[in-house]
Design a binder for these strands. Structure first.
Lengths: 351, 351
DNA sequence: GTGAAAGCGCTAACAA
DNA sequence: TTGTTAGCGCTTTCAC
């Protein structure tokens, strides 16, 4: 077990003071190029690794940001983190990743841990439980402490002080509704995952608004609320089927519900799109090869990661502190899970 | 912007020394319960957050481990990280996550960064590039420094000093071959992703061994090597089709190749499983709803994460230092992407 | 251009 | 049980 090398060791070895070594290694001015090079070589030879605890204790800088995800099993974060990683790596920043697991207590533990670890900023998608419980107080506290925070995907609607990158959730559902109406659908349902979650609540609002706007019939039974755990999606669909109360189309509100809806339909012998059209949420690679290929609402997930982390670095380094709210648009990716009822009708007329 | 609170502030406020505050807050003995409680309350009131840089500098403990993934976009890591997170969180450990992105240079940067940040151990899936380039020297250096390391998914076969958790990759392919042979398949191909990667090379070895073992015809053309980037899978399949040289079954060697194989077949109008049977790799949720549902080799991914992190914590806290190599078995999950040629034959005989 | 020394916030001997 | 103090490894004034 080799001993840990410090700048003191290097200083002795090179016959200079620790101050000089520090300056040489940290790239600060005040050392001759000649000497700097020598010191760098010695450091390399000795296998020196800087002690960031010491540096961050001294400078209060860590070149590190904290990223909190709400559920690490959600493939959403694969693209999101790729976006984040891309911008951070190129700027020399690293990140701590934590999984709040949709649990406010866990979120608090991790948030504190990150700040204790001296992160220079935080990227978070805050949890909100059914009863309205959230960590908003902790976010407020950190805001007051001057820790840059950018919220992504989810936000606290009433807290104007936080910057955020979200999509226009309401609009995404309204777009879906318009698309469906154009395809001749009038009886449309929506399946929601865990209630309380910001994005899900917004999507529900979009559904209600959209139905009014487009003069679509609105039935409470066609809304699948709080579909958690997994079997609830199957149960709800079965119930609609049993009561012969199936809408012609159902909108899923996340990628999990999309998959559950497809597999439930399969089990119940409901043909997609003949018996039921499905509008998926999130464009995952498998949407292409599911049967039928899934028409879906696509969020610019990679972009969310890219923009949120760029904004955060802006706050950190350029002291850009006014709260900015970026709202991106989702788009519809057309595949084969939605039937065109207009064509079906004209076909009947012809025969 | 509130001032940062230190134990000194608490000490003044409570009229005691910093040492007492330190003892009280860190749960160490030597303070009366009464006083400890008072100090905790004062700390809470002041909004104290410990400075882990200072603690780490002083104690060389960080309650943090480093996790390196080889490609964050791979859904493999969703389950893996869930396993890791489960064991770490319950033991009060947190993790730094880095994405080497199959790039040796990036891997080195992150590895160094983690050690500089005082991680108490590392969980890594090392990169090895086509030309054999790897970061093995760096791993060796950290090993000598006494930093606990557990390799997962991938390993350095010749380096006996490292503990690891992998699956029996060769065996997984041999199992697949046996399964296929039982279903009447003789002409079997295999599609490999990026060459050089440990798991992929092992799976190829398993294929070659298995073919010999089972007396299966072996054609170099049926091996799709180094299928990267994405269109290569399509190209290779098209080539086989054009030359009327399609095997009856192809084994995919990871989840990406599985998906690419399905979508390429679709584009080329190759019916699965009538024209071509496919054995997928990795059991992702969508395998169930792809058309046809994908028969696959399932790795115990969650278990890999659980075991690897448990082993690492064992090394860290119990000083358990002998290298341990855990090798888990994969299993076949049967669905509908493989045709039973025996039945087909008997059908012909009957008619 | 270089060195001496103070000090970041905390812990842990050692004293009392 | 509590306080005093040295020092973890580094950066950064302030001298020279």
């Amino acid at each position: 077990m080799t001993k840990k090398i410090t700048i003191k060791d290097i200083a002795e070895r090179a016959g200079v003071s620790v101050a000089t070594v520090s300056r040489a290694l940290s790239g600060k001015p005040g050392v001759s190029d000649q000497l700097r090079k020598e010191i760098q070589i010695k450091a390399e030879e000795l296998g020196y690794l800087k002690n960031s605890a010491a540096i961050s204790l001294k400078t209060s800088k860590s070149k590190t940001i904290g990223v909190i995800v709400s559920d690490i099993r959600n493939p959403f974060f694969l693209d999101f983190l790729t976006g984040v990683d891309n911008v951070l790596f190129s700027r020399g920043y690293k990140f701590l990743l934590s999984n709040s697991d949709e649990n406010v207590e866990k979120e608090k533990v991790y948030l504190n841990w990150m700040v204790e670890h001296g992160v220079e900023g935080i990227l978070a998608s805050p949890v909100s439980e059914k009863d309205g419980k959230s960590s908003v107080n902790l976010y407020r506290k950190f805001y007051k402490l001057g820790i840059p925070i950018v919220l992504y995907d989810r936000t606290f609607p009433k807290e104007t002080q936080f910057s955020s990158v979200t999509i226009d959730n309401k609009d995404s559902i309204i777009q879906a509704l318009i698309y469906l109406k154009n395809k001749g659908h009038e009886n449309i349902g929506i399946f929601l995952s865990k209630s309380g979650i910001y994005t899900i609540e917004e999507r529900l609002k979009g559904f209600i608004e959209g139905c009014k706007l487009l003069n679509l019939p609105f039935k409470e039974e066609w809304i699948g609320r709080d579909l958690y755990p997994e079997e609830m999606t199957y149960n709800k669909l079965k119930e609609l089927l049993d009561k012969k109360n199936l809408p012609t189309a159902i909108i899923a509100t996340n990628n999990k519900i999309t998959k559950l809806l497809v597999s439930a339909s399969r089990k119940l012998n409901i043909n997609i799109p003949k018996d039921l059209s499905i509008m998926g949420y999130d464009d995952l690679p498998e949407n292409e090869i599911i049967s039928p290929p899934i028409t879906c609402i696509k969020q610019p997930v990679f972009e969310i990661g890219r923009i949120a982390s760029t904004m955060l670095l802006g706050k950190i380094n350029d002291n850009f502190s006014e709260p900015t709210k970026v709202i991106l648009k989702a788009e519809i990716i057309e595949r084969k899970s939605i039937q065109d009822l207009n064509k079906k009708v004209s076909h009947f007329i012809k025969t």
